[in-house]
């Protein structure tokens, strides 16, 4: 009886200790966001990028951003929602264009359940986001990217949570960059509001948002 009591106490104590450690690590990471130096993987100067193609205009915008990046940003892993019909074609066209131009076109596609449909209520969104997370965590851990690049919408949250967890657990310092859509002039999207706290860099494209979100990066219009 006494032995099992002390066993339970020990397990509890251990759990509390681990939670405290994780919390401490969380605080340290949150304070160091955007300042961390990139830890290079086995690829030398190449960066494995996980790109979240958020559907519709989001995909168009992120592909334009990718178009400006050098060959160092490869291979590229595109993540798209399973309900998204259009993005795959846009991505394949984009990568084919790169190949034609003699640039690096090493890429792959991954599909995950969509975490939030347009106008879905917040409560059911939480449930479907958790469901999407079940797919996102193994995906991110398997690919172990150097950089996660996204611009919303909700699909990016579980992926970014997985990337952040890799960092929290000390597995890899996955950098996260969120680019708010050019369509956002006065208000930041829900995913943007979340990523304001967890991304290394949140880029906004209008001065009015920089004033509301001082930690954000404003470079003018980039798409």
């Amino acid at each position: 009886m006494a032995a099992s009591m002390s066993g339970t106490t020990l397990a509890l104590g251990g759990a509390v200790f681990i939670v405290l450690l994780l919390f401490l690590r969380l605080v340290i990471i949150l304070r160091s966001l955007g300042r961390g130096k990139l830890s290079r993987g086995s690829n030398g100067t190449r960066l494995k990028v996980l790109v979240i193609a958020g559907s519709g205009g989001h995909t168009t915008e992120i592909l334009r951003l990718l178009g400006s990046l050098s060959d160092a940003y490869s291979p590229r892993v595109y993540v798209l929602a399973d309900t998204d019909k259009m993005s795959e074609e846009k991505i394949r066209t984009f990568e084919a264009g790169r190949e034609k131009d003699g640039r690096n076109s090493e890429f792959s596609l991954e599909r995950i359940p969509r975490s939030r449909e347009v106008r879905q209520s917040y409560i059911t969104s939480v449930a479907s986001t958790l469901y999407a997370a079940l797919y996102s965590f193994p995906l991110v851990f398997r690919h172990s990217p150097d950089l996660i690049l996204c611009n919303g919408p909700g699909t990016c949250i579980p992926i970014c949570a997985a990337g952040f967890s890799m960092r929290l657990l000390g597995l890899k310092a996955v950098q996260q960059v969120y680019v708010e859509s050019m369509c956002r002039v006065q208000t930041v999207s829900l995913s943007g509001q979340i990523m304001y706290y967890f991304a290394d860099h949140l880029i906004v494209q209008w001065q009015s948002l920089k004033e509301k979100y001082p930690k954000a990066v404003y470079l003018g219009r980039v798409v």
């Binding site: 955007g34 400006s68 990046l69 050098s70 950089l147 980039v222």
Partner: peptide
Amino acid sequence: GDTSKFSNFLDKAM
């Protein structure tokens, strides 16, 4: 928009 501002920023940040 000027996408090169984005790539320059990202190159520095990375």
